[in-house]
Amino acid sequence: MIGKDRVNSAKAGDVTFRDVSTAHQQFRWGKTALWLIVVLLAADFLWAIANNENFGWATIREYFFHPEVVAGLWVSLGLTVVAMILGTILGLILAVMRLSDDSLANGLAGIYIWFFRGTPLLVQLIFWYNLSTLFPTLGINLFGLGLGGWDTNSVITPLTAAILGLALNEAAYMAEIIRGGLLSVDKGQAETASAFGMTRGRALRRIVIPQAMRAIVPPTGNQLISMVKATSLVSVIAMSDLLYAVQSIYNRTFDIVPMLLVAVFWYLIITSVLNIGQGYIERYYGRSDRRNSAAAAMQPTGEV
């Protein structure tokens, strides 16, 4: 009787029912018009650039794969890889020292990070390149007893100065990135590993660091992209990187803007590839989060 009364009251107009089987989203004229305006402006901008002969598109095509440019590109990539590897390793050591209960290790790491993050990278590169003005020879001297000695200019070449400057500077930033990632892991993870008899180092390698990677990878990807661009600074110490190669060419041809655009396009290509790789790594380390979310969605809610 109750069900029939509800149907009758609905038919009588007490309750309004709407048929939504054929409902559809309303067309957004304003948003479509805005997109159209943006596309037209972008197309007009690109057309103006493509038809502007002052950009020297012919020169760009001529020198884009020039042997000197390609050689400088490989130098920039090599510096990026070596500096990031050394900086990450040293940064991991500094991060562990910063988290240590030992006040000496904590203090030394803090001073290192404070100094290298507080001074410009360009100044550090110039300092390493001119180290011979302070120390003409390099060696170990303990209480007047000299243990070996090498001419500083023969040791600190433009290559070693570039690697030292980039790697030591990067280590300071990577230390804070890694430290933040380690702190993001629940302390109970390390305590559980210790309860199962794992040493602190083993727990760090097997338990803590793999979980911290989800927080470490995104900022590390940004640092890698920044490192690619930071290698352009080594041109001031006569290191034949991509920018130095471009500069040496336009010093001969006086095609400044076209040659700078050659470097810009190569940097954009490299950073785009690195962005794709960063996205893949983030998805790889985010698999556990997706599995946990899927498992939680499949669990019964307990509602009756």
Rank of each mutant, 00 (worst) to 15 (best):
M1L: 12
N8M: 01
S9E: 00
A10P: 00
G13M: 06
V15P: 06
R18D: 09
T22S: 14
H24F: 06
Q25D: 07
R28H: 10
R28Q: 11
K31P: 09
K31Y: 13
L36T: 15
V39G: 13
V39R: 13
L41G: 14
A42K: 12
W47E: 14
I49Q: 12
F55A: 10
T59N: 11
R61S: 09
V69M: 07
V69F: 03
V69S: 09
A71P: 05
L73W: 03
V75F: 05
L77C: 04
L77W: 00
L86P: 01
G87K: 08
L90A: 14
L94Q: 07
A95G: 03
D102P: 00
L104Q: 12
L108C: 11
A109P: 05
W114M: 13
R117S: 09
T119G: 14
T119C: 14
L121M: 12
I126A: 14
T133P: 09
N141Y: 11
L145V: 15
G146Y: 13
N153G: 15
V155L: 11
A161F: 05
A167C: 04
E170C: 04
E170I: 05
A171T: 00
A175S: 04
A175Y: 06
E176P: 00
E176V: 02
I177D: 01
I178A: 08
R179Y: 04
G181R: 06
L182F: 02
S184A: 07
S184D: 06
Q189K: 06
A193F: 07
F196E: 06
M198A: 06
T199E: 08
R202L: 07
R205S: 01
R206D: 07
V208S: 03
P210S: 01
Q211V: 03
I216F: 03
N222E: 03
N222K: 02
V234D: 03
V234K: 04
Y244M: 09
Q247G: 04
S248N: 00
Y250E: 01
R252W: 03
T253Q: 02
F254S: 10
D255S: 01
M259L: 15
V264Q: 13
Y267S: 10
L268D: 10
L268S: 12
I270R: 07
S272H: 09
N275H: 01
I276M: 05
G286W: 07
R287I: 02
S288A: 07
D289V: 04
R290E: 04
S293A: 11
A296E: 08
T301A: 14
G302N: 10
E303F: 15
V304L: 13
